[in-house]
């Protein structure tokens, strides 16, 4: 594996861009900017005293010449990095994990799972997370407790599609996800396909207005959103639930507990259980 040298250049604050332009020349191909600091890298095979001195000299001269700073305020340190394959680092951080009955695994997972595991194959994408966020874990746990095979499920703010797909994996007859983010539709469809439940999952782009008249009387409604959205749309959520249907609301900061309960109560939803982490909580309720 290739060995890289890290160069860490300290420059006067405000002159980072100017310094970056002076620094960025062969063998450097890119850099990172932070306040008063530039970090860049080059291959050890290109290292020499002259290369190192050149980097410092270029930046010092540019700062001096700009009239906005002094060459003596520029300093550079060099460090040989341990050889690392950065793609592997990321992949290894994606270890499978269990939540409720689910085993959440990378999509190309080759290991073994327990016969009782409900496998969810997930590839964390650009827009969405890894399924590890407490609010997602809480929602998955509640889903496993509430869902009966054959249920119809609505996922409000479906994002990656993980909750709708999890519902289908548990035996939901129909799982409909919607999200204002246009990425959510391809993301959800791909996830459903990958988990073999594309036939029972559907994703649409928009807010509550995008739902058809027939998209109502759901047995389970999932809403992993922010508390302010849950409060504002408590009535919309209730309107899509059947009488006695279950609401699983997550993504609630603990300090929003009371306000969110009140909004649900006003919409005819009784909260009967909560799960709490340090900062986040989830609620499970029923429409009366």
């Amino acid at each position: 594996m290739e060995t890289w040298i890290e160069v860490d250049v300290r420059v006067p604050e405000g002159l980072e861009e100017l310094a970056a332009e002076a620094l960025l020349a062969a063998p450097l191909t890119g850099l990172e900017l932070a306040p008063g600091r530039l970090r860049s890298y080059f291959l050890a095979v290109n290292d020499s005293e002259a290369v190192r001195a050149g980097m410092l000299a270029r930046v010092a001269a540019a700062v001096e010449r700009s009239g906005l700073g002094r060459a003596c305020d520029v300093d550079a340190t060099f460090k040989t990095m341990k050889p690392i394959d950065w793609n592997v680092v990321w992949r290894e951080s994606l270890r499978p994990f269990r939540v409720g009955p689910f085993a959440v695994v990378p999509h190309d997972f080759a290991g073994t799972v327990r016969p009782t595991d409900v496998v969810l194959k997930l590839e964390p994408g650009g827009s969405y997370g890894t399924g590890r966020h407490p609010s997602t874990r809480f929602a998955l746990r509640y889903l496993a407790r509430s869902l009966r095979p054959g249920d119809r499920v609505l996922d409000a703010g479906s994002g990656s599609g993980i909750l709708a797909v999890a519902a289908a994996r548990l035996g939901a007859r129909e799982a409909l996800g919607f999200d204002v983010d246009p990425n959510a539709v391809p993301s959800g469809e791909e996830l459903a396909e990958r988990n073999g439940v594309a036939q029972r999952c559907r994703f649409v782009c928009g807010d509550f207005g995008v739902l058809a008249a027939a998209d109502t009387a759901f047995d389970v409604v999932l809403a992993n959103l922010h508390a302010d959205l849950l409060q504002a749309h408590a009535g919309d959520l209730a309107a899509r639930m059947r009488k006695g249907g279950a609401l699983i609301a997550s993504g609630i900061r603990v300090e929003e507990d009371e306000r969110t309960r009140l909004a649900f109560a006003a919409a005819g939803i009784t909260v009967h259980a909560t799960m709490r982490g340090r900062k986040w909580m989830a609620m499970s309720g029923t429409r009366s």
Partner: peptide, 27 residues
């Protein structure tokens, strides 16, 4: 904040160390 060659970025530094430490899908 990074400055990278358009159309030619790779998972090698600076992308790898800058994003890897935050657990981002570098690829």
């Amino acid at each position: 904040k990074l400055q990278l060659p358009a159309g030619q970025a790779t998972p090698a530094p600076p992308v790898g160390p800058a994003l890897g430490q935050h657990g981002v899908n570098i690829g």
